[in-house]
């Protein structure tokens, strides 16, 4: 029982969703569309599990005074603070307006967006160090990688750019397209193969054993 029912569910829903793709009838398409809604609703239940995990991991850290346990307070403080600001009760004049509330929106937009953009901008530094380490003509492959990068980077210099831009554009349009198509086709096949393995029940690590 424990084993058969999930496998049956996989088999039924897998083939059903596959078949629905080819049936344009209204009812069939409704199910197709609703699937995404369903997944996102289930996702909220899973999110509850996730938040539970976040809380227990942090409480555990504090309880056992593991390394950096003090910082767990900050995480929990941020978590509960934000949840409280996200509550909605008390009518129009209350401070708690759910997502419309001033603190909820502004705390995120004005305080956390800076962190977000800064994390993102770390990439500028990492790109430099990665380039320094990796772009060396160690082997034929590395040299080709290097040449591709150099041609495209020169593209942005004034003066030289006039001469190199056609070549850079050509690389970005032609070999780029070829490589992408090759990868896409391989990926497309891999996706179908993995999908089939899931539906046929060959691939079932995600379901556990018992």
């Amino acid at each position: 029982m424990k084993r058969q029912i999930p496998l049956a569910l996989v088999f039924i829903f897998g083939w059903l969703m596959l078949a629905l793709y080819f049936i344009p009838l209204e009812g069939a398409q409704k199910v197709n569309e609703n699937m995404l809604d369903w997944t996102s609703i289930i996702g909220i239940f899973a999110l509850a599990l996730g938040i539970w995990s976040l809380i227990t991991v942090n409480l555990d850290r504090i309880k056992h005074k593991k390394r950096d346990w003090q910082y767990s307070f900050i995480t929990l403080f941020g978590l509960f603070g934000m949840i409280i600001f996200g509550l909605k009760f008390g009518g129009e004049n209350s401070m708690f307006q759910g997502q419309e509330s001033y603190m909820f929106r502004h705390f995120f937009n004005d305080i956390l967006i800076p962190i977000y953009s800064t994390m993102f901008s770390l990439l500028a530094f990492f790109i430099a160090s990665a380039a320094y380490r990796a772009f060396r003509a160690r082997s034929a492959l590395a040299s080709i990688l290097l040449i591709g990068a150099i041609i495209v980077m020169i593209r942005f210099f004034p003066f030289v750019a006039e001469y190199t831009r056609p070549v850079a554009d050509w690389i970005l349009n032609v070999p780029n397209l070829a490589a992408k198509r090759a990868i896409w086709m391989g990926v497309g096949l891999g996706i179908v193969a993995t999908g089939l393995k899931v539906i046929l029940g060959i691939e079932r690590a995600y379901m556990g054993r018992d």
């Binding site: 997944t39 996702g43 899973a46 599990l49 690590a205 379901m207 556990g208």
Partner: peptide
């Protein structure tokens, strides 16, 4: 992702059991 998290838990647990 929370769903991924749930599945990952199950997967790792199964790995340990195996």
């Amino acid at each position: 992702d929370p769903i991924v998290f749930t599945i990952a838990q199950e997967t790792v647990r199964t790995g340990y059991m195996d």
